[in-house]
């Protein structure tokens, strides 16, 4: 466990949720607590505690009126973390460390406002090395988030994201897809499609070293997942192409997520305040 408490994150859901548990988020449920919504007849909403005497007396047809309130309910927050080998590569940062920081912050914050936190680790298809169903117990959530370590990152691919969408259940949840999104073409689209029922936030972990390769020299690079090797002769022209390619990739991610929330790019470090700001700006 980390010695100090993880940072607090504030978030908001994009739409009213459907849930049975009281919590902090606006929901579609109307009941006896919360923000006043409307009045209706007692027959429709037989809640004797919220009988509106003034409205009932005023009614010439002598119906009994009841006040309804839009209740706040609890949501499920899931962190779906990429555990492919590329997450353990040490650049300017280790991405899985960054993912762990984000997951810890969520595991701390979500139970704090009454939401449940769940954690799913994804690597190859049919294999989920880490799975913590949504829980309101903060200690359990934190322990699950803390278990995200570089040693777990052994997957050769990230297509597990497609399969693990089924673990989330039917109710609309806030889902953080935490990955570097260095996926084969088409996978991002299909994953976003599988999670379309949820409020999805793509948290794109970016290593600034990958964005800014050196100017001159030779590098022997090896892919962390496929092991494919390539010698690269860095020079300003290639560097420019490299940076353009990276920008294109990020622009494409933003485009794909465009109908939902814009992706959040975490460059080397996690800034909780900025993260919260982006989550609130929906």
């Amino acid at each position: 466990m980390t010695p100090s408490a993880p940072p607090e994150i504030v978030y908001r859901l994009r739409e009213r949720i459907h849930s049975h548990m009281a919590g902090a988020h606006p929901s579609a449920a109307l009941g006896g607590y919360g923000r006043f919504h409307d009045q209706t007849t007692f027959l429709r909403h037989p809640d004797a505690r919220r009988i509106d005497l003034r409205a009932s007396l005023r009614d010439p047809f002598e119906d009994i009126h009841v006040r309804r309130f839009a209740e706040r309910r609890a949501a499920d927050v899931y962190a779906v973390v990429d555990l492919s080998a590329s997450m353990a590569v040490a650049g300017a940062c280790v991405k899985i460390e960054l993912a762990r920081t984000v997951a810890l912050a969520l595991a701390w914050s979500a139970p704090g406002v009454g939401d449940r936190f769940g954690l799913i680790g994804c690597a190859e298809r049919e294999r989920s090395p880490v799975f913590q169903p949504a829980t309101r117990a903060r200690a359990v959530a934190l322990r699950a988030a803390d278990s995200l370590r570089a040693e777990l990152c052994a997957g050769r691919a990230a297509d597990g994201f497609v399969a693990t969408a089924g673990l989330l259940g039917q109710r609309r949840s806030l889902v953080f897809l935490i990955s570097d999104f260095r996926w084969p073409p088409g996978l991002v689209e299909s994953v976003l499609g599988r999670y379309a029922a949820h409020d999805v936030v793509a948290v794109v972990l970016v290593d600034s070293e990958e964005e800014n390769p050196p100017d001159w020299g030779l590098m022997a690079l090896a892919d962390s997942e496929s092991g494919e090797r390539r010698l690269v002769f860095m020079r300003p022209a290639l560097r420019r192409r490299w940076a353009e390619r990276e920008q294109e990739r990020q622009a494409r991610l933003a485009f794909l997520a465009g109908r939902g929330r814009p992706p959040i790019f975490l460059r080397d470090r996690f800034d909780p305040a900025d993260f919260s700001r982006r989550l609130l700006a929906v």
């Binding site: 590329s86 997450m87 590569v89 040490a90 650049g91 991405k95 570097d180 260095r182 084969p184 290593d207 990958e210 590098m219 022997a220 690079l221 090896a222 892919d223 962390s224 997942e225 496929s226 494919e228 090797r229 390539r230 690269v232 290639l238 192409r241 490299w242 390619r245 990276e246 990739r249």
Partner: peptide, 11 residues
């Protein structure tokens, strides 16, 4: 050999 997250990032 330097490990890189994805060789596809290299043009």
């Amino acid at each position: 050999i330097r490990k890189t997250a994805a060789i596809a990032a290299v043009p």
